[in-house]
């Protein structure tokens, strides 16, 4: 919807809450989340969809939010890293990232965890190759990925052990 100042009103559901923001149509979803909604968990590493640090779930798909114009997020359901904890209990992936050493400097961690959430939503028992493939859009410079892959595998195992 156009407003007098050339701004749009965008309505979307973020982490289960309905939100409406007034913004430029081509504002990046990443900026909507970070600047309008104060959700700074998604990070900007490159601004061109290469590093995956800004990954969030949009209608159940993992997207690099730096490449999504606000207009495209109209009526979308977004989940960010801030939406994973339930009753201050860590999501299983947040816990295994901690235990296995999947987070070092932490800047890529929110994006990687969101990509891993997406993977486990669609493959509950991924193979190592499937894990590597699913995370290949998220760059991490600290870990060399070994412990991240282990964290994802561990979360999948824990889920099945329940």
């Amino acid at each position: 919807m156009r407003t007098p100042a050339g701004l749009c009103e965008i309505s979307l559901t973020v982490n289960g809450k309905k939100k409406t923001v007034r913004t430029h149509a081509m504002e990046r979803l990443l900026d909507v989340l970070r600047h309008h909604l104060g959700l700074t968990g998604a990070k900007e590493g490159c601004g061109e969809g290469e590093c995956g640090s800004c990954s969030v779930l949009m209608n159940g798909q993992v997207v690099t939010s730096c490449l999504v114009p606000a207009l495209q997020a109209q009526d979308a359901t977004i989940t960010t890293i801030e939406g994973l904890e339930a009753d201050s209990q860590l999501h299983p992936l947040q816990r295994t990232f901690l235990e296995c050493g999947g987070a070092q400097c932490g800047i890529c961690t929110p994006g990687l965890i969101m990509a891993a959430v997406h993977l486990l939503n669609s493959h509950s028992r991924p193979t190592l190759e499937e894990i590597k493939e699913a995370l290949a859009g998220n760059l991490c410079r600290c870990t060399g990925y070994t412990q991240i892959c282990e964290a994802v595998a561990q979360a999948a195992r824990d889920d099945h052990g329940k």
Binding site: L39, T40, G41, A42, K43, E44, T80, I81, E82, L84, E85, L90, Q94, R95, F97, L98, A103, C105, G106, I107, T109, P110, I113
Partner: peptide, 13 residues
């Protein structure tokens, strides 16, 4: 660690 996996850690940006 907890701040990092929950997105609460505050980087300069």
């Amino acid at each position: 660690g907890r701040d990092k996996v929950t997105g609460r850690a505050q980087y300069i940006d």
